[in-house]
Design a protein around this nucleic acid. Structure first.
Lengths: 114, 114
DNA sequence: TGCACCAGTTACGTCAACTGCACTAATGGG
DNA sequence: CCCATTAGTGCAGTTGACGTAACTGGTGCA
């Protein structure tokens, strides 16, 4: 009766945590080093503060990153990956390599943008 | 004015193709070898025929897999990865390794299932 | 007095992936 | 005659990740 909905397969577990399009991209940014909230927002064009906050809070609660708030005015908050978060690098690297090597035709719908 | 919405980053490109929870798991199953429609459906508990069809059709149109329909009654359709599809193995392997190595606390919400 | 600064928060609405159920075609077996 | 079989399709509805807009708090600077 324990761990009812935690899948055995590692791939399925991974997908459980990295749902939407932004989750993975936030990790990608933080692999470059510690970043402030505003830096992350600027590095991820199109993301909303709402989504960024939600994902960061989730990853913090799951032990993937550490949040450090400095009691200053205006406030300053720095996010950095933990060892667990940094251990995602091979996964991101593999994604990157595939995304770079695959032909453009793998991503477009036969007449997509222009 | 070309390639307007195709991101440069390989990670972002990868995520463009593997949206939902099922997309990646279908590839995982097909890495075991060619599979029939019904075999895939049985190997992916919870997936609906609709979703499975949609993803398979998408991946076929993107060149990740090949669809072979035998003109028999009842019908028989076999799906198998192309070279491009098989080249996803390192990515899936990296996901699997991380999902297996990460502590359970990375996946649950501090009091999730029971 | 009042605006800018940063890192959010709240309320509300959108959109796409996904689900369930019912249904189909064509044939072999009872 | 009727049912089981396989690979879907159509319709209706749900879920959850995400977006927009407006707002907060405490201080420095004009």
């Amino acid at each position: 009766m324990v761990d009812v909905d935690l899948p055995d397969c590692g791939v399925a577990r991974f997908l459980l945590l990295f749902d939407g399009p932004w989750a993975t991209l936030i990790i990608r940014e933080l692999l470059h080093g510690p970043q402030r909230f505003g830096e992350l927002r600027d590095a991820l064009p199109g993301i909303s503060a709402h989504t960024l906050t939600n994902r960061l809070r989730l990853f913090e609660s799951r032990g993937l990153l550490r949040r450090t708030a400095f009691p200053e005015i205006p406030p300053r908050v720095v996010y950095e990956l933990t060892d667990l978060g940094r251990s995602l690098r091979p996964v991101l690297d593999a994604m990157y390599a595939w995304g770079k090597a695959a032909p453009v035709s793998a991503f477009v719908s036969a007449s997509d943008p222009a």
